[in-house]
């Protein structure tokens, strides 16, 4: 009992002194669990997040856009890989993590349960969805768990590139034909509020925030991040000559108000009732199941090669 208390004190003191926690360090079970939940959720979001954009790969309007979109989605696969590896340092395997995704036990960001309906959505996803994600992720570069923080540094660099790329897609549309401008505004309208809800429920309803702040897994609250995102986006949208629905400058607070968010709908999407929850999960399960024979064959072949090499060594 005393030893545990002592370990906990050492742990909290490292956190308080901004010393990273590393895989072999002692950590409270709840810290480990919280991190596995959060990192795996993040990894799954990268992988499921490949699907809505993947929906446009074969229909990009130019070759330059095709190459950029493919490269972007490939980056997301890479992010998924680093994050699964970071989670594995906490004592869970990639197979277990995938299993939790496929059985619905693990969550991923609900934003990817919305459909990508127009080419402009490739811009909105980059500008708003990646933009909202970056707000969270920049904070995570300083998170207390070493492997996660280091993975996030690399991820953030690529994400900010995606963010600019998305904005540039919209900027091109905003300077184009009437049909393109309309496509641009319609897409922004559709993604805006779901993007705001990416920061999670309001602070007073967020069950995980308090402990995560104490452990410096999170370093800012949902509401703080959300407001900062709104204030930045409200300025950026001016360059597009477009508008953000329900966003108004509030002289007295010095911030932009963004109107009411429909949290009932948010929780419905989290629970599986979003427009694409079923399609996204089905697509992941299908890819995994269709790939089973390939993974088995690769293992069987590697095993055969090992035996062949061993018998070669013996005969030599």
């Amino acid at each position: 009992m005393d030893t545990t208390k002592n370990l906990e004190e050492i742990f909290q003191s490292k956190i308080d002194h901004e010393i990273k926690i590393e895989p072999k360090d002692w950590m409270p079970d709840a810290y480990r669990k919280t991190l596995i939940r959060q990192i795996s959720q993040h990894a799954h979001s990268e992988i499921v997040g490949m699907l809505p954009e993947g929906n446009w790969i074969t229909r990009t309007p130019s070759l330059r856009r095709k190459v950029a979109l493919l490269a972007k989605i490939q980056d997301e696969a890479g992010h998924g890989l680093y994050l699964y590896s970071a989670a594995e340092t906490l004592g869970i395997t990639r197979d277990q993590l995938l299993d939790e995704l496929h059985t619905g036990k693990a969550k991923y960001s609900s934003i990817f349960n919305y459909p990508a309906l127009t080419w402009a959505d490739m811009g909105s996803v980059g500008w708003l969805v990646d933009g909202a994600a970056i707000m969270n992720q920049v904070m995570l570069c300083r998170t207390s768990y070493g492997p996660y923080a280091r993975a996030m540094v690399r991820i953030c660099k690529e994400e900010s590139f995606h963010h600019r790329q998305g904005f540039e897609i919209l900027l091109t549309l905003s300077q184009g034909t009437e049909a393109q401008k309309k496509m641009c505004q319609e897409s922004i309208n559709r993604w805006w509020k779901p993007a705001l809800m990416m920061f999670g429920p309001p602070d007073e309803q967020s069950s995980n925030t308090e402990m995560s702040m104490k452990w410096k897994i999170k370093r800012e609250t949902n509401d703080e991040l959300r407001q900062r995102f709104v204030d930045v986006a409200a300025e950026q949208v001016k360059f597009l000559n477009m508008t953000l629905p329900d966003v108004v400058w509030n002289e007295s607070t010095g911030h932009y108000d963004f109107g009411a968010l429909d949290w009932d709908h948010f929780w419905n999407v989290v629970k599986g009732n979003g427009p694409c929850n079923k399609q996204r999960l089905d697509a992941r399960i299908k890819a995994h199941e269709n790939g089973a024979w390939v993974r088995e064959a690769a293992l069987a072949f590697a095993e055969k090669q090992k035996i062949r090499q061993q018998s070669q060594v013996k005969t030599a």
């Binding site: 993947g54 074969t58 070759l63 493919l70 490939q74 696969a77 890989l81 699964y84 697509a283 790939g291």
Partner: peptide
């Protein structure tokens, strides 16, 4: 590029996207 996001596992998903990027790059 039709495989992107649907590969048998992540590493090969990325490998096919790489090849796709090479070929489309050459075509451009």
């Amino acid at each position: 590029s039709e495989w992107c996001g649907h590969g048998p596992f992540l590493e090969q998903d990325m490998a096919m996207t790489n090849i796709s990027l090479d070929l489309i790059g050459q075509s451009r």
